[in-house]
Computed example of a mutant assay.
Amino acid sequence: MSKSTQQPFDFATADFNAVYRGGDLLEDAGITKVPWDIAEPQPGVIEFEQRGRIRGEVLDAGCGLGDNAVFLASRGYRVTAVDAASTAIERAIERAGDADIEFAVADATSLAGYEGRFDTVLDSALFHTLDADGRSRYAAALHRAARPGAWLDMLCFAAVPGGMPEPLAVTEQAVRHILTEAGWTVTELRRSTYLGVAEATRTFLAKTGVQVEIDDRGRTLLPVWSVLAERS
């Protein structure tokens, strides 16, 4: 991870509703387009499904515009997709069309009303957006929402060279500690890649001094932890 950050940002002030409407995600960061809207499911989510890591009732926590949820629904899974940003849910419902998905606006650090419901929990890049306390509350909320023996499949920005700046990126040790403290048993944690929209983050990356790989389709190739865990 680059230590030559030129300008710090308070990621706790991120306004997700604003960026979904074309406004600023972070003050002075130059992010006015949704950086994670690649208009298709994340390759890491497709890999989870191909590896047989999806079963039963599925929670897509922090579903954003719903492309991962639509993919899973198309594969025959019963999916509940939640996000704290109401604008994201509104647009996800439109994008999903007639896909059989239960969308809802919900605080993922609480998930009140979803206790003991899910066999699989998917987190495609929500965990790292929270501060330290929020990550702990979130991991505990997912544990409450999951059934005994449920699976957690998570993609989380990795605090490694060529990745997003800390604290937006998370160390392997922090991921393991927070999940374990919340009652999850981590069964696999390895490096993978998350696709983003380079155009949306070019100014932000320049200001932070972080250099990331960009493919020939104009997508950032961001290092993430691909985490598999089981509810103890």
Rank of each mutant, 00 (worst) to 15 (best):
S2Q: 01
S2C: 03
K3Q: 07
Q7A: 02
Q7K: 14
F9V: 07
F11R: 12
A12W: 02
T13Q: 12
T13N: 09
A14T: 08
D15S: 14
F16W: 07
N17L: 02
G23L: 01
E27R: 06
D28T: 04
D28Q: 02
T32L: 01
V34A: 08
V34Y: 00
P35N: 05
P35C: 05
I46C: 09
I46A: 07
Q50K: 14
R51K: 13
R53V: 05
D60Y: 03
G62C: 01
G64F: 07
L65H: 10
A69Y: 10
A69N: 11
F71K: 08
F71V: 10
Y77T: 03
A81Q: 08
V82A: 11
A84Y: 12
S86A: 15
T87Y: 00
R91S: 12
G97Y: 09
I101R: 11
F103T: 14
A104F: 07
S110M: 14
L111F: 08
A112Y: 03
G113P: 08
E115D: 15
G116V: 04
D119Q: 13
D119Y: 14
L122A: 12
D123Q: 06
L126C: 15
H128A: 12
L130N: 13
D133P: 00
R135L: 04
R135Y: 03
A139T: 09
A141C: 03
H143K: 13
A146V: 09
A146L: 02
R147M: 14
P148G: 09
G149S: 11
G149R: 06
L152G: 08
L155D: 15
L155W: 11
F157Q: 13
A158H: 13
V160R: 11
P161Y: 01
P161W: 00
M164A: 15
E166G: 10
P167T: 08
L168A: 11
L168W: 05
L168N: 07
A169P: 02
T171M: 06
E172V: 02
E172P: 06
R176S: 11
R176P: 02
I178M: 08
T187Q: 09
Y194T: 07
A198C: 01
E199T: 13
E199V: 10
R202F: 00
F204I: 06
A206V: 03
T208Q: 02
G209Q: 02
V210L: 03
V210M: 10
D216S: 10
G218I: 02
R219S: 06
L221H: 00
W225C: 09
A229Y: 03
E230L: 05
R231M: 10
